[in-house]
Structure formats: structure tokens, C-alpha cells
């Protein structure tokens, strides 16, 4: 890839041709405030925070392609004043309950305010929103608080461009604009599949998972729900799994997950979960060891070779497991009667 040299705040950096000034800056550890930019999505230039000065003219760095010899200032007085107004407007419109917000230290707005520096007295001069909007708690996995929403549109673009469903869009006009489903119905009545891709990309605490704890550490794993084998990181606290995060490096899912993989992890620590094999003795299931169970299965299978035997495999097994099942059925049980629930 062709490398391009440009200068940001006097520092000469190298960037790949075709990238934006914002991406080039971030890749070189130069922070430019931004709220509506997400590396997975096309830039839209809506938040107006990432403005930079190019020869006295303000350009949005997320939309500005790098070019050889470009000289960019991220904090000229004009750019700084415009950014200051934008962040003050956002903060004056935002609820002030950071301590109880799920986004907590992950909040981009907080991060930007911290970076720019905000004078509380100036925010007080602005008019605060009057009536809070109702929170949509209809979805079992996440909630949507329009009061915290900064209308960056990342959720809209995620659902449209990554998920391909297009559940969300902007509703209403002007300062009454909100993110909403078709007809602004509750999430549960929309075509939303609850995959949570929008939730993980929300830069503030507006779209937030209902059940979430900060894990003490993470364990790399594979989702057990289907044969795709999505890469995940299980967040662990003590002996409990408290979160799931998609693995962006795993080729099969590249950072995406479905509703089951992302939110369906409570079975792991569920009290009803079977953790040992059970063998029925005198009409009652009794806990057994794996050796006992496997011995029993092997013994019984021996009685049903050929056409007396059939195998039905599960879609929750990996491809490798399913391959072994058919190999076992054909080679050991000597029948071709093998099927899979996903073939329906």
C-alpha cells in the first residue's frame, strides 16, 4: 500500500493512501475528538467535533482524505471555538447522571469533554431539556434511553450496513429528532433481531445491555450455539461468566455476534444445567461419571448395527464434531442413515 506523508500539529506522520486524516491521526496516537465516527462504518460528518484546520479552512477530518504534504492543525483557535460550542451543546442536552450510567468510563462523550476541557459555568448558562423522553425497555436484552442519545447515527448505520436489517432510522425533525424503529414503535414490536451490534457500538449509554457486569478478566472461547463457531471473549468474575464480547480477529464472525451468542450466556452458570451425565436406574436419573456413561452407550450401540441404527447430529456442534458423527455412523455403525437438524 502506498504511504503518504502528512503533518498533524507539526508532527510528520505516515498514512496509507485512501485513509482519512482522522484514521491516520488515531493510528499515530494523535487524538482528535470524534463521536459519530466508527472504524467499521463509513464516515458521515455529523457530530462536527473532528474539525481540523487546513490552511485556515475548517474540514471534518473523518471526511478528509490524506494527501501528500497536507498540513493539519487539530486545535487552531477557530476550530477549537467551533468544537467547544459543539461539545457544550451536547453536554447541555445530556443527562448528568454519569455515576449511574452503564457507559461509565467507556463513554465517548465523557472522554471528549475530558479532552476538550469544559467549563461547568458555561454549560449552566445554556437551557436544559425540559421533559425527559420515555425509556424503551421493551427489548429483553437491552434498553434504549433517548435522553442519553447523541444522534451520532452509528446504530442506524450499523443496522443498515453491517447487519443489513435497517431496523433503525432518525424519526422526527429538528431538536425533536430521535432514533426510532419503523413507526417509532417499541423495539420489541419492530423487526429487530436483538443482535446487539448497535448496542456495542453506541458511544454513550443510550443503547445499553440490561444485564452486564464489568468482568475481572476475559477468556477466549468459541460460541457453542451453532456451527459458525464465532470467536468470543467470555468475561469472568470469580467463577461466573458475566459478559460476552465478540472476537474481531476471528475470521468466521469478524467482531459480530447474534442474539444468542451475545446475550444467551446465562445457561453457563444456570442451576438447572446438566454438568454430569445422568443414567436412568430404576426409573430415576442418577448422576454418573463420563466413563460410566460412555461405557453404557458403547455397550448398547453394539446391539444395533446397520439398518437398526440412525444418527441425528446437532447444529450446535462444530463442523469437526459433525464430521466425526458421520464418520462414526458410516464406519463403525455401518449405516448411511445419518442426518443433521439444520438440513431441514
Amino acid at each position: 500500500m502506498e504511504k503518504i506523508k502528512l503533518t498533524i500539529d507539526g508532527l510528520e506522520i505516515e498514512a496509507e493512501a485512501g485513509t482519512s486524516v482522522l484514521d491516520a491521526a488515531l493510528a499515530n496516537d494523535i487524538y482528535i475528538p470524534h463521536l459519530c465516527h466508527h472504524p467499521d462504518l463509513k464516515p458521515v460528518g455529523a457530530c462536527r467535533l473532528c474539525g481540523v484546520d487546513v490552511n485556515g479552512r475548517m474540514e471534518m477530518s473523518c471526511l478528509l482524505p490524506v494527501r501528500e504534504g497536507l498540513d493539519v492543525k487539530t486545535n487552531s483557535p477557530e476550530v477549537g471555538a467551533t468544537r467547544q460550542v459543539a461539545i457544550e451543546l451536547l453536554l447541555a442536552d445530556h443527562p448528568q447522571g454519569c455515576l449511574s450510567c452503564g457507559a461509565s468510563l467507556q463513554c465517548e462523550l465523557l472522554h471528549i469533554a475530558d479532552h476538550i476541557g469544559v467549563d461547568g459555568e458555561r454549560i449552566e448558562r445554556l437551557r436544559r431539556p425540559s421533559e425527559p423522553l420515555p425509556i424503551d425497555n421493551s427489548n429483553p436484552f437491552f434498553s434504549f434511553d433517548p435522553n442519553k442519545c447523541v444522534l451520532c447515527g452509528i446504530c442506524v448505520r450499523t443496522c443498515e450496513d453491517i447487519v443489513g436489517l435497517g431496523v433503525l432510522d432518525f424519526v422526527n425533525r429538528g431538536s425533536r429528532t430521535v432514533i426510532g424503529t419503523f413507526g417509532n414503535e417499541p423495539f420489541i414490536d419492530s423487526i429487530c433481531e436483538s443482535c446487539g451490534e448497535c448496542v456495542v457500538r453506541c458511544p454513550v449509554g443510550s443503547l445499553a445491555p440490561k444485564r452486564w457486569q464489568r468482568p475481572s478478566h476475559e477468556v477466549q472461547s468459541t460460541c457453542v450455539y451453532c456451527g459458525v463457531g464465532c470467536g468470543i471473549y467470555l468475561g469472568v468474575k470469580g467463577d461466573q461468566v458475566v459478559s460476552v464480547r465478540a472476537d474481531r480477529e476471528r475470521p468466521s464472525n469478524q467482531g459480530s455476534l447474534c442474539v444468542k451468542g451475545r446475550y444467551g450466556y446465562n445457561f453457563i452458570n444456570h442451576k438447572d444445567r446438566l454438568t454430569t451425565p445422568l443414567i436412568k436406574k430404576e426409573g430415576q436419573f442418577v448422576e454418573a461419571t463420563w466413563d460410566e456413561a460412555l461405557d453404557l452407550v458403547a455397550e448398547k450401540f453394539a446391539d444395533y448395527k446397520g439398518s437398526e441404527f440412525a444418527a441425528l447430529a446437532s447444529a450446535k456442534c462444530t463442523n469437526e464434531d459433525n464430521y466425526l458423527i458421520q464418520k462414526f455412523t458410516r464406519a463403525v455403525m455401518q449405516t448411511n442413515t445419518v442426518d443433521h437438524c439444520a438440513r431441514l
Partner: peptide, 13 residues
């Protein structure tokens, strides 16, 4: 205002 960009949406308000 269409509501897209911050200065217009919140500034006019």
C-alpha cells in the same frame, strides 16, 4: 433542522 449535525440541531434549540 434535519437533526443530523450537532451545531444545527442543538444550537438552534
Amino acid at each position: 433542522s434535519c437533526g443530523k449535525c450537532v451545531p444545527c440541531r442543538l444550537g438552534t434549540k
